[in-house]
C-alpha cells in the first residue's frame, strides 16, 4: 500500500512538467493504481465478512476440543453428528419449526392486512384518509422497545402472552407501518383504467382487489414480502419478552441465545456452532437464490 501511495506521488509530481503529452497516460495509470487500491479495500472487507461465516461452517464439523484448542484449524474428520445433536438434543429443530409456523402466519397476515389497508388508502378518497395514513406511517420512526412495558400487559390482558397467536398478531401489527407505507406508494403507480373497467363490468370492489389489483402488484408484494419474512424471522426482542413460557415454544433466535449462554458450563461448543450453522444456512441459501429481490426489497423503502 505504501508503494502505491509513493507511485501516486511520483506520477503527480511528474505530471505538470509534461502535462499535455502525458495527460492521457497519467490518467490511465491513476486508474490502475486506484484499481489496485480499491480492490485491496474491497477484498479486506469481503474477507472480514466472509471468513467469520465460513469459520462457523467449518467449526460446526469439528469436535469441541478442536474448536476451542485451535480455532483456525480445518476439521480433520467431518463430524456431522454435531448437526444431529444440535437439531435433536439442543432442540434447534423444534425452534426452527416454531419459527417457521409463527413467521408463516405473521407474514401472510401482514401481507393481506397491509395491502388491504394500503389499497383503500391509496385509491379511495374519504374523510380521515390522510389521518389514518400518517397514523400508520408514523409508527416507522419508533423502536418497539419504547413501548415494551405496556405491550407486555396488553398481550397479557388479552390472554395472548406466551402464545403463538399473540406473537403472530404483534408481529403483524408492528410490520404494518412499513408495509402500508410501501404498498400505498406501489398501488398509486398502477394504472386505474383496468380496475375501472372491472367495476363497470359489475365486479365488486373486493373482487377487483383480490383478482385484479393483487396479481398486478406482484413485484411490490415480493419485495415487501421478503422484507417482512427476514425481519420477522430475525426478531429477537419481541419473543424474549412475549414468549417467555415453556422453553419448548422458543423461537430460533431465543433458542440460539439460550444455547450460547448454556455453553458457559455445558461446554458443547460443537453443538453451538452446528446450531449457528443450521440457523444460518437456509437464510444464506434463500439469499443467494433471491439476492436481487432481497436487495431490492430491503433497500426499497430508503430510496423512495
Amino acid at each position: 500500500m505504501t508503494t502505491n501511495a509513493v507511485s501516486v506521488e511520483n506520477q503527480k509530481s511528474a505530471a505538470p512538467t509534461a502535462k499535455k503529452t502525458t495527460k492521457r497516460n497519467w490518467r490511465r495509470s491513476e486508474g490502475g493504481v486506484l484499481n489496485v487500491f480499491s480492490h485491496g479495500f474491497l477484498l479486506v472487507w469481503a474477507l472480514m465478512v466472509g471468513v467469520p461465516m465460513l469459520w462457523v461452517l467449518w467449526s460446526s464439523l469439528k469436535t469441541s476440543g478442536d474448536i476451542v484448542g485451535s480455532p483456525w484449524s480445518l476439521p480433520t474428520h467431518l463430524h456431522f453428528d454435531n448437526w444431529t445433536r444440535a437439531w435433536n438434543k439442543a432442540n434447534i429443530g423444534q425452534y426452527f419449526i416454531n419459527t417457521a409456523i409463527v413467521v408463516g402466519f405473521s407474514t401472510t397476515g401482514t401481507m393481506i392486512l397491509g395491502s388491504m389497508a394500503a389499497y383503500v388508502l391509496a385509491r379511495f378518497e374519504f374523510f380521515g384518509n390522510r389521518f389514518i395514513y400518517y397514523l400508520f406511517v408514523g409508527g416507522m420512526a419508533f423502536p418497539v422497545v419504547m413501548v415494551l412495558v405496556p405491550l407486555f400487559f396488553v398481550t397479557k390482558n388479552l390472554g395472548l402472552l406466551n402464545t403463538f397467536p399473540g406473537l403472530i398478531l404483534v408481529y403483524i401489527a408492528y410490520s404494518l407501518p412499513f408495509t402500508v407505507f410501501f404498498m400505498t406508494s406501489f398501488f398509486r403507480t398502477l394504472p386505474t383504467s383496468i380496475a375501472e373497467a372491472a367495476l363497470v363490468d359489475g365486479s365488486s370492489h373486493t373482487r377487483t382487489f383480490f383478482q385484479i389489483m393483487l396479481p398486478m402488484s406482484k413485484p411490490g408484494l415480493i419485495s415487501i414480502g421478503v422484507f417482512n419474512i427476514l425481519g420477522q424471522w430475525n426478531q429477537y426482542l419481541l419473543p424474549i419478552v412475549l414468549n417467555q413460557g415453556d422453553s419448548k415454544n422458543y423461537l430460533l433466535t431465543q433458542g440460539l441465545a439460550d444455547l450460547a449462554t448454556q455453553q458457559g458450563y455445558a461446554g458443547d461448543w460443537a453443538a453451538l456452532f452446528a446450531g449457528l450453522a443450521i440457523a444460518m444456512l437456509p437464510v444464506l441459501a434463500v439469499y443467494i437464490v433471491f439476492q436481487k429481490q432481497i436487495q431490492a426489497g430491503l433497500t426499497a423503502g430508503a430510496i423512495k
Binding site: L113, F153, V154, L176, F209
Partner: peptide
Amino acid sequence: FLAIPLALYGVLVISPFVQD
C-alpha cells in the same frame, strides 16, 4: 378493508404508546 388492520394496529401499537 380498514377495520381489521386498524383495530390490530390500534390495540397493539397505538394503545401501548399512549399507555406508556
